[in-house]
Amino acid sequence: MAKVKGAIVVEVERCKGCQVCMVNCPTDTIGMEEEVNGKGYHYAYMKNPDYCTGCTNCAVVCPDGVITVYRVKQN
């Protein structure tokens, strides 16, 4: 059975740490980094990279458009 694998890339310096992506991630992939970025925000990152399906939910709700999403089908 084909399995969908995804990954996100967060533009760290543009992320404002609002967590809207995190609560809208259906697979609990996203967490907020303990460290802060240059603006002092705890930015989003893939806490559980294995869970990501590349569904783009995080990216479409991100107010700052900082998330890029990739997806592959695995056999």
Binding site: T56, V69, V72
Partner: peptide, 22 residues
């Protein structure tokens, strides 16, 4: 494998809005 990226019609300027603002 790219499936979503911010449209280039948004400029590179950082949005002046508060975190989480619609």
């Amino acid at each position: 494998n790219l499936v979503y990226k911010r449209t280039p019609l948004m400029t590179d300027a950082t949005l002046s809005y508060c975190p989480g603002c619609g």
